[in-house]
Amino acid sequence: MAIAKRQPKSTSAPLSPDPKHPLEDLIRMERIPHIWCPGCGVGTVFSACLSAIQQTGIDYRKFSMVSGIGCSGRGAGYVRLDSFHTTHGRAIPFATGIKMADPSLNVIVFSGDGDLFAIGGNHFIHAARRNMDITVICVNNFIYGMTGGQVAATTPHMAKSSTTPFGNPDSPFNLPLLAIASGATYVARWTMIHSRDLTLAFEEAIGHRGFSFIEVLSPCPINYTRRNKIKTMDMVRQFHNNTIIKNHANPSELDIDFQKGVVLGKFMDIDKPTPDEILAKLRNQ
């Protein structure tokens, strides 16, 4: 039973009086509008992810999306794929189960910084260590958005949140450094405004054999920028103006500081056997 592979986007937009949005075949349109607030970047990142899925040309049935809990965690609920909205922090082990039980699937974890790096941090480092062949997309909006703007493991030092009303005393994670130190074999960082690079990075990450991680900086207009008296558009302009693309930059210099400029790009792309491949080899011995 074979179905025709979807055409890449460039040829799929028919010119009729009322053509559809080119991503509609991958979106559960009956669930739109989504819950993301005006100005929230999650929708943009989600859209880039769907474009990347289209552009791989791979049969959609060979994809599965897994999310945890939070604003970004709603991603799995809008994609027209076999999709799973799991418990808080546990998207990666769920994805690990899917991938190890059926290695023919492309498993994408689409979730947020709180979900992946606070409550789910342990799973992240271990999946990276194993070089589990999944793609982890982290929408980093610097805050717990859905619960109303509490401090996260990615909130900048001294930034205000509802639980750090006088400023965040802690320092945030440098996520690409964490990923690389843990053993991730593909690591990149972009912002939601770099959606073309982002789409290409997602496509590359899906094609990458092994653990791929992409951090995407994104504004939270309601719970981060407003509380910190930043105009959301100014933050997005910062993404555009105060960032430097520097592939293979030194991971320890990837802390997020818009004053000195935030480094974007691809920081790691190496080849290493994956657990499912190794297991398949062992089975054949």
Partner: peptide, 11 residues
């Protein structure tokens, strides 16, 4: 959690 993911692949 991993066994739930696996269960949805039919295992």
């Amino acid at each position: 959690t991993s066994i739930l993911g696996a269960a949805w692949t039919g295992a």
